[in-house]
Nucleic acid binder design. Sequence first.
DNA 1: TATATCAATAACTAAATAACAATTTATTCA
DNA 2: TGAATAAATTGTTATTTAGTTATTGATATA
Lengths: 118, 118
Amino acid sequence: MTQKVPKHQLSDEALEMVAARFKALSEKTRLKLIIALEDGEKNVGELVKLVGANQANISHQLQILADAGIVARRKDGVNVYYRISDPTIFELCELVCGSLKRQIERTSSTSRLFDQMQ
Amino acid sequence: MTQKVPKHQLSDEALEMVAARFKALSEKTRLKLIIALEDGEKNVGELVKLVGANQANISHQLQILADAGIVARRKDGVNVYYRISDPTIFELCELVCGSLKRQIERTSSTSRLFDQMQ
DNA sequence: TATATCAATAACTAAATAACAATTTATTCA
DNA sequence: TGAATAAATTGTTATTTAGTTATTGATATA
């Protein structure tokens, strides 16, 4: 009799890291920042305008994304420019959008919410 | 001059749903439940033993996963069996694990944490 | 050097939530 | 009907965190 080998055997530490990555993506403001950075780096002031939250909060959320390894920073004079450092997050977002779209279609609600998502 | 069309133009409502999906995956106990359900449905008692948290908490976390459309329930007598209803979460987890593994390798820390992840 | 601008940080508040104990509800079986 | 079991729910506590205001630090410029 062969012992059953679980496909996923991640340590608590690894699970914590996976959870942390998902947590970084679990907030609307941070998702907006990521989307705003999709077409290239932007400085904090530009992001404040685009996302529509106050400067302290944007800085805070950018810090969280940076800690999670999702964005990186580059200082240029008084400005600080942020950019996406882990492009896989767009694959993640697309997977989730696709899944949500199918779920909404299945429940016969409006499925147009995710149509703009390629 | 052509107007720049952003690739991702999701409404606040859609963003909220994406964030909620990620939030459901942002907790170690819930990730353990998902992994425990990977090889087939299990009832609450089995999950309590496998995950190692108390029954009330497991029920609560399963409720959250069910609300997110990630798991589904089936009642059989006194037992309630849960199963994965959205298999794309495994793709999500693998993307994240791969990304984390590369990040760890890049920072020259131990990258063995995610080796068991196929 | 003085001033203005940009971003980060500190201090705080309000809201969300993970975890637990105790209770309730539903089902099975004696 | 009455116990026994399984799962859900309720109430509570402690922790986390998004957001705000005010302040600080750093850089550029007059």
